[in-house]
Nucleic acid binder design. Structure first.
Lengths: 340, 340
DNA sequence: TTGTATGCGTTATCAC
DNA sequence: GTGATAACGCATACAA
């Protein structure tokens, strides 16, 4: 079976393709009679305009591109879920690519998307990205761009993110309010802003509450900041500090869960002997034992806002209206459970 | 900044677009000299052929479409991970759509993908799909189609799946071998084949080991077969059977984890008072307490195989070779942990 | 060895 | 009210 074209319709009706095209778009200068016959036949034969031809003429693809570090991540799945739903409502399709936390992949993927003629791009930067020429290229090509979650402050585009420093500050303040004093931090990679900000929030909360910051309580997890990092850091911190540490604030839930597993194995009581506070509020946090206190990042909201802004910019561009980039801060929420 | 076209190159070099086009594709009938000058300039200006024009001529989009029930699912994320990696290697891009377990979404999405001119389609069917006209349409349009995981036996295309019945049989047989006798089953939706097959495997294992099948031990979870289903069914089974049940085989891990949570809350010892066996081997299964025995579905392998077959068919079609559809059964594996 | 002409499917401009 | 024509960017058959 082949796709029906304007030509097919025109031939069957003894009209020109020009008239058929105009009839389908309800142009005023076509008689109602021809309009009806054209539209009826088009419906009957399930005519759909060829998207390549459309693209060639209009430069519009009705596709938006999304680049994320990784797919297998509760946070990003949730963001994508929102993006898909919003895109679909607007009759847009979504091309997804994974950078796998590699700058060179991200760069190549940007080129591919630009070449494919996507109408807009959403990116959550890889941890290794600290050169932004590829993002500038998107802007130079005049393609709307929105950065979310892992953003670059210096790039001139819209951004959707959370206040990592504030969220971390609140979490650590909560721990302090519960009486914990020797609070460690399992921090993430040195590079990404999130990781830096969460560390800064941790540090500031200590200082504001009169607790001296002790660098030896900060553990750098530069692998993947994943389960095994949490597990091994938990082991290490006991070797280093014994019971002279009473709580750990981790840069993400996975590390907290790794730590919980280690402590559970060793029969160390949570939160009595050591308390834990995660970050991201993965589904998992609610079902492990003990359930993990965490910071909800509102992933769905982040995805929704990101694509909403992207579409605003796409529409502005289409109608040649000016557009001022937005910076949206998504609210976070402390979710207190049994780990502290 | 604008995209460079053949015309731009031609103008700058004082050549025709035809010659430039041929030079770029290394045609034998272009002088080495012009070839070099063209290729040098193309590289310098970062020329990339316009993908709409390419599509319009060749009918190839270099895009494949994937429809899955939902994004937020460890299994599907892992499948997508594999699909992305394999597609990228072949310079293909991937459009992803979620059916949200709704037939009408799935149908609409198929139409969108066909209209977009994708070169191939991968689908894991929604639980509610039991009409396959939309799939037939793909076949009629001569677009390669591979069904994976949630397949339809009657549709004439390649399929990649696991042997659900066998896997369930093995899990339940394992429970029996450990001495459990009153083994319940939390089953999934009545419609999808997976759910049916897992139930049949459960039943057959009982019968083959001389345990009478007791229908009152089968709980139908027709909501989403998710965490809360597991939790509430766990509650119900205790009301119905008290301690006259010693193990539960669940249709997926989420339901098992829901049940574990209920039993943990009530202080019911796992596996001493009741054992559990899940299905899918989500990451979560390894980190909850107690860790959950499950069946690993080899999601990555399933994604990889699916797209490999899809590309085989795409290539065959391109070179007008015949292609016989394949049925690939992905091996599953029992992963025994502390819940039984 | 290079250039001209055509078509892919659509739409906009301009004749008729 | 309708139709011929050109253009979007590319590749190719064919002419020079």
């Amino acid at each position: 079976m082949k796709h029906i074209t304007l030509k097919d319709l025109a031939k069957q009706l003894g009209l020109s393709t020009a008239t058929v095209s105009k009839a389908l778009k309800n142009y005023p200068d076509v008689s109602d009679e021809t309009k009806k016959s054209v539209q009826d036949l088009a419906r009957e034969l399930n005519y759909e305009p060829n998207s390549f031809a459309l693209g060639l003429r209009s430069k519009e693809s009705k596709i938006i591109g999304v680049i994320i570090p990784t797919m297998i991540h509760y946070f990003f799945s949730s963001v994508l879920d929102a993006i898909f739903k919003e895109a679909e409502q607007r009759n847009y399709m979504v091309i997804v690519m994974q950078s796998n936390e590699e700058y060179c992949n991200e760069k190549k993927q940007v080129d591919l998307l630009l070449n494919k003629g996507v109408d807009g791009i959403l990116i959550s930067l890889s941890n290794k990205t600290n050169d932004f020429k590829h993002l500038q290229k998107i802007i130079d090509y005049d393609i709307p761009l929105v950065l979310f979650d892992k953003i670059a402050k210096l790039v001139n585009c819209s951004k959707v993110f959370i206040d990592d420093k504030k969220a971390a500050y609140e979490a650590v303040s909560y721990l302090i309010s519960k009486g914990y004093k020797r609070i460690a931090h399992f921090r993430g990679d040195l590079n990404p802003q999130n990781s830096i900000d969460r560390f800064l929030g941790y540090k500031k909360a200590l200082e504001d509450h009169g607790i001296t910051f002790d660098p030896s309580l900060v553990y750098l997890c530069d692998n993947n900041s994943d389960f095994s990092d949490g597990y091994s850091s938990a082991k290490q911190i006991l070797l280093d500090h014994g019971d002279n540490v009473d709580a750990i604030f981790t840069v993400n839930d996975l590390m907290a869960i790794g730590a919980i597993n280690y402590f559970n194995e060793k029969g160390i009581k949570i939160p009595e002997q050591i308390a834990l506070f995660g970050f991201s509020n993965w589904f998992m946090a609610s079902v492990i034992t003990p359930s993990l206190s965490s910071i909800d990042q509102n992933a769905y909201q982040m995805g929704k806002k990101s694509i909403e802004i992207l579409f605003e910019e796409i529409l502005s561009k289409k109608s040649n209206k000016p557009f001022t980039h937005k910076k949206i801060v998504i609210d976070t929420e402390l979710v207190i459970r049994n780990s502290c």
